[in-house]
Design a protein around this nucleic acid. Structure first.
Length: 561
RNA sequence: AGGGGUGUCGCCAAGUGGUAAGGCACAAGAUUUUGAUUCUUGCAUUCGUAGGUUCAAAUCCUGCCACCCCUGCCA
């Protein structure tokens, strides 16, 4: 802590101002946050905001962040998910200072605290059914009714609570409830349930317990027990804050308790977010799995080629927020993806839709030339490519009827081949069916790239591959999983839309392309910019016989005919 | 007997009584052997609305209006 000079820290939101005050006043000696996922699904883009806030806030103040699996509901949780979080977090570049499974670490302590609260007259065993509890809770405008079991003695409650623990009650037949106020205007304070009877196999504890604490009860105590100073969560928990503080005050009963503070949830237009729906897509086979490159899960976007830096920069740009949920356009995310990839992606030439070109005045072996691997990073060096008698260019880079301002190749026109020569198109050879078979061009030997003495001015530059220096690769292009016009897919589903109503048909397009041989050196997850086309990432399904590249995102294109 | 939040450019978002930052998007221009990148420039006389206080209000006061969240033995 001593290494942080508080006066040099510029607070970026109200929480950071509060942290500085707490540190200066001595209320807190250090900053400890926790990252508390429930292992019930894979993380998606929106989670990154929460984890970034947890880790970056602590980091800014030289503090610590604990990864705590918030596993208090055996019905929903699985070990597979918990394991995925460890990997996702590492990929994001965050190292937790401690790994905790709340169930293993705190269930005993939480149980003891519950017994203490019973003895303090703060909790009681209620034998109302779930429906009865619901019926007696009152409404938004009317107070609730007190449970007939509310005034049992502490001794009686303790005996009953132990009976709950010992399996003497069937599932749903009893709960432990906090004795607060059935007439409280905040519904969360109307004698909330602390423990329920639940016989289900817990993914870590098996059948050790048949009672499980509720989030509202367990979470504040876990925070307190752990020494967490700031418990950061999304805005929907704001109204649980009084309850959070009530459990700390009546359960933990020590000074300098953790503080719960809330930030806005993040959603992105046109992206389906929500564990429940994502799970359904996986189970129904709509996507190939949790790591389908069209999926907003971290494993998905990672496979697609997004970087952790892009994601983190993106969520930081959105800020803390002060409403339940902020929705930003997808383009806001894409900006950060392009920006990062532009800095790190290796440039390569790939022709996605080849048109054969014969250089009539070229003789002999192919000649080599060099391409800069990354114009933004001199240290990335160069790689060799080739130019020769037969090359391929992009079909769309030649036109028989060019639109206005078309800077590419036309009949009788010239264009520069990136890294090589200027060529002139002399003749278009057609097939019998009228389609173009190939082009006959001549190259201008004096126009060699970097060594041009021809004096010819050439407006356009296009990419190409030489027949002797290319191989076939597989490209996976993606459209948005969800139809463009559906900006809030989760909302649409909740409002009754069918999956097929919101699903973009054929969002996966597989095709072949011709890549320069240099791409044979690629490894899984390597990121490339296919010059003039977009960013691509080598997929894990690749084999030595079949290199597969996922389209991460296209380059911006301001050409408007 | 309801309670809790929020309203600043199309989207995020600073702003804490001294005369509306920034980013995305968009538009125009320059440079460019990627129509990318980069670079310039433009983009709220006005802060939900109506009043009030003040030399001065997005910021303070009052009244309206709009939107979001809360009635799980989920987290």
């Amino acid at each position: 802590m001593s290494k942080i000079d508080l006066d040099k820290i510029i607070p970026e939101n109200a929480l950071e101002e509060e942290i500085i005050d707490d540190l200066k006043s001595g209320r807190n000696k250090e900053v400890i946050t926790r990252c508390p996922p429930e292992p019930s699904g894979y993380w998606h883009i929106a989670h990154v905001k929460a984890w970034t806030i947890d880790f970056e806030t602590a980091k800014k103040f030289g503090g610590k962040t604990y990864l705590r699996m918030d596993d208090t509901n055996p019905l929903k949780e699985e070990g597979e998910f918990a394991e995925s979080y460890l990997e996702d977090l590492a990929w994001l570049g965050y190292k937790p200072d401690k790994l905790i499974y709340a169930s293993e670490a705190y269930f005993d302590d939480i149980y003891k605290i519950a017994e203490q609260m019973i003895m303090d007259g703060k909790a009681y065993v209620c034998e109302l059914s779930a429906d009865e509890v619901s019926a007696t809770r009152g409404t938004l405008t009317e107070p609730g009714k007190e449970s007939p079991y509310r005034n049992r003695t502490p001794e009686e409650n303790l005996k009953l609570f132990r009976a709950m623990r010992d399996g003497k009650f069937e599932d749903g037949k009893a709960t432990l409830r906090a004795k607060i106020d059935m007439a409280h205007p905040n519904m969360n304070m109307r004698d909330p349930v602390m423990y329920r009877v639940l016989r289900a196999k817990h993914y870590r504890l098996g059948n050790k317990w048949c009672i499980y604490p509720m989030y509202d009860f367990a979470h504040p105590l876990e925070d307190a027990l752990e020494g967490v100073t700031y418990s950061l969560c999304s805005m929907e928990f704001h109204e649980h804050r009084p309850l959070y503080e009530w459990f700390i005050e009546n359960g933990w009963k020590k000074p300098y308790p953790p503080k719960q503070r809330e930030f806005s949830r993040l959603t992105i237009e046109n992206v389906l977010i929500g564990k429940r729906y994502l799970k359904q897509f996986v189970n129904d086979g709509i996507v190939s799995g949790w790591d389908d490159p069209r999926f907003p899960t971290l494993v998905g976007v990672r496979r697609r080629g997004y970087t952790a830096k892009a994601l983190k920069d993106f969520v930081k740009s959105v800020g803390w927020g002060n409403v339940l949920e902020v929705t930003v356009p997808y383009s806001a995310l894409e900006y950060y993806v392009r920006t990062d990839l532009n800095q790190i992606a290796t440039r390569a030439m790939v022709v996605l839709d080849p048109l054969k070109v014969v250089i009539t005045n070229y003789q002999g072996e192919d000649e080599e030339f060099e391409i800069q691997n990354n114009p933004n990073d001199e240290s990335a060096g160069y790689h060799k490519s080739k130019f020769g008698k037969v090359i391929y260019i992009e079909k769309e880079d030649f036109s028989l009827n060019p639109p206005p301002k078309y800077n590419r190749l036309v009949e009788g026109g010239i264009v520069r081949l990136k890294g090589a020569y200027i060529i002139k198109c002399n003749k278009v050879i057609f097939k019998e069916n009228g389609e173009i078979d190939h082009l006959e061009c001549e190259y201008i030997p004096e126009s060699q790239s970097g060594n041009d003495t021809s004096g010819i001015k050439c407006k356009g530059t296009i990419h190409f591959v030489s027949e002797n220096n290319c191989f076939e690769i597989t490209i996976r292009e993606f459209k948005n999983l969800i139809k463009r016009e559906i900006t809030h897919p989760a909302k649409a589903l909740a409002d009754g839309a069918k999956v097929e109503d919101i699903l973009e048909p054929n969002s996966l397009i597989v095709k072949k392309a011709l890549a320069e041989n240099f791409l044979k050196t690629a490894k899984v997850e390597d990121k490339f910019q296919f010059i003039r086309k977009g960013y691509y990432c080598m997929d894990k399904d690749s084999t030595p016989e079949n290199y597969i590249f996922n389209s991460t995102i296209s380059l911006k294109d301001s050409y408007k005919p």
